[in-house]
Each structure stands twice: as structure tokens, then as C-alpha cells.
């Protein structure tokens, strides 16, 4: 009798210990269900997409929507635009921003000018896009750079630049000064020391910074919506959005495009996982 009761208590204790896991699993389910649903719509035949009751599992899968969107449709071109744009703007932001980060982290600045400049640079990143978009639109129109990848690449470079400076400054500050001073005593120039000694040391940080720039450019919507209005210049998010706001929506092709649009982001996030906190808090929290 005693044993049975303590067995009960033991079981109750075990069940209670499981509760937090159940709650966490429920949270994961809520976080992933919309993504899963989008995936199923992209894989279902049109008759099944909006069937009642909703088919969460056990539907006939087809790849026709992916073919529709990418082989027959224009999403392949949008995809290419997005890839080019993300790559060009990331490389440009790194090329301009890394030296600035190094300059702020390594040199003596009178009267805390390094802090003031860094704060000013970061505060430009906080400008709401909608504030600068009207003048940028008019400026690019004047320069005949509307609806061109170059115009949007310039804007994205400026958008990511503050982030690069702020992130990389933190990484450079973690490298002991003595390392490059030794290299410079051995006859290495300042920029040689940066390129050959310091950059390899901060490579993980550099990679994480690049990943964040890529993701921002890849996901960005508002600038792209306004600055690329022709079919030829559209990015993937704008292409998807232009289909949703039409009267008759091809949900299958659009979901397929959406699934394809989120894959690179998830891959990149997995790659930069160690630096997610630092990157997403604009480099403010070390992690």
C-alpha cells in the first residue's frame, strides 16, 4: 500500500517535471505551424490547397508550383536579382566599413571622437526607411538609377554600412594591439597588418557580419518596393508582394517562391548562430 502511494507520488512528480517541456514544445509548434502550412500549400495540388477539413498531413505532393514559379514564371529572375543585390551590397558595405571599424578601434582619437563618430554612424542606421525613402527615390530618379540593381545596391550598402562598422569595431577591439604592432616592427605596413594578421583573426566575426548584411538585403522590402517597379528589376520579396496584391492570387506558385525565399535565410542563420544575439542587437550585446 505504502509502496503504491509513493509510486503515485513519483509518477505525479515525473509528470510535473514534463510540463515545462510540453509548454516549450507547444511554443515551437506555434512558431513553426505557419511556416509548415506555407510549405504544404506549395506542395499541394490546387484542389487540395483549400480543402475542408484542412489537410495538415497526408496530401498528395506535387512540385508543379515550383516549376510554375521558377521554370515558367518570373521568379527565377527575381531570385537572381536578389542574389546579385545581396552579394554586391554586402561586399561593398564590408569594403567601406571594415577600414572604418579598424580606424575607430585602433587609433588614438582626441576627445572621444571615436565614440562620437561610432554613435553617429549607428544612429544613421536607426533612421526609419520611410523617412529617407522619398528623397532617395527622387535622387535616384534624377540620376536615372530607378529600377536598376545598381541604384538599390547603393541604398543597401548605405543601409548595412553602419552595422558593419559597429559590429567589426567590437571584433577588432577584442584583438590585442600587440599582435599587429609586432608585425609592423617586422616591416609590415598598417594595411598589410590589417589584411594579413588582424582580419584572419577576426574571420568568424567577419563572416557573421557578412551573413547579417546578406540577410538584411535579402529580406528587405520597402526600399525594393519603391525603387524597383519594373518586372526586370524586382527582387524576390517585391515579386511575391506584387502577386499577393493582385485580384486573383496563384497561391501555389507564390508559396513555392516564399519557401525558396526563406531557405537561404535559414541556412545563413544556422551558420551564424553563435553571433545571432550580437548581430540582432546591432552589436550591442556580446554573444
Amino acid at each position: 500500500m505504502m509502496r503504491a502511494r509513493s509510486g503515485w507520488r513519483e509518477a505525479a512528480r515525473k509528470a510535473a517535471a514534463l510540463l515545462p517541456y510540453l509548454a516549450a514544445v507547444a511554443a515551437v509548434f506555434i512558431a513553426l505551424a505557419p511556416v509548415y502550412w506555407l510549405l504544404t500549400i506549395s506542395l499541394k495540388r490546387e484542389v487540395d490547397q483549400f480543402a475542408y477539413p484542412p489537410q495538415w498531413i497526408g496530401f498528395t505532393a506535387t512540385l508543379e508550383h515550383y516549376r510554375d514559379a521558377f521554370a515558367g514564371g518570373s521568379f527565377a529572375a527575381y531570385f537572381e536579382n536578389s542574389v546579385l543585390l545581396a552579394a554586391i551590397s554586402t561586399i561593398a558595405a564590408l569594403a567601406i566599413g571594415v577600414p572604418a571599424a579598424y580606424g575607430l578601434a585602433r587609433f588614438e582619437w582626441p576627445r572621444q571622437w571615436d565614440h562620437r563618430i561610432a554613435d553617429w554612424i549607428l544612429s544613421t542606421r536607426m533612421l526609419p526607411p520611410i523617412v529617407t525613402i522619398v528623397p532617395l527615390f527622387l535622387m535616384l530618379r534624377q540620376a536615372r538609377l530607378l529600377n536598376s540593381l545598381i541604384g538599390l545596391a547603393i541604398v543597401y550598402t548605405g543601409f548595412n554600412l553602419p552595422f558593419v562598422v559597429w559590429m567589426m569595431r567590437g571584433f577588432f577591439e577584442e584583438v590585442p594591439k600587440e599582435i599587429e604592432e609586432a608585425a609592423m616592427l617586422d616591416g609590415e605596413s598598417r594595411s598589410g597588418a590589417l589584411l594579413r594578421i588582424v582580419l584572419p583573426l577576426v574571420r568568424p566575426g567577419l563572416a557573421a557580419t557578412a551573413v547579417f548584411c546578406l540577410v538584411v538585403a535579402w529580406n528587405e522590402f520597402l526600399f525594393a518596393l519603391i525603387l524597383t517597379q519594373t518586372e526586370a528589376a524586382m527582387t524576390l520579396p517585391v515579386g511575391i508582394a506584387s502577386r499577393v496584391t493582385q485580384y486573383e492570387i496563384k497561391w501555389g506558385a507564390m508559396s513555392a517562391a516564399g519557401v525558396v525565399a526563406m531557405i537561404p535565410v535559414l541556412v545563413f542563420a544556422a551558420a551564424a548562430q553563435k553571433y545571432l544575439v550580437r548581430g540582432l542587437s546591432l552589436g550591442a550585446v556580446k554573444g
Binding site: 515551437v28 513553426l32 535579402w218 529580406n219 508582394a241 516564399g258 526563406m262 542563420a269 544556422a270
Partner: peptide, 20 residues
């Protein structure tokens, strides 16, 4: 890791999922 996924998606794609 799993709980972060919604935030990483392109906002346009997330919104499309919610329209569905």
C-alpha cells in the same frame, strides 16, 4: 534555435503565410 525561426524569415513571406 527552433523558436527563433519566425523572426528570421523574410517579413513578406511570413505575411503571405498568415494570409493563408
Amino acid at each position: 534555435t527552433a523558436l527563433l525561426i519566425p523572426m528570421l524569415l523574410p517579413p513578406v513571406v511570413a505575411a503571405v503565410a498568415w494570409r493563408l
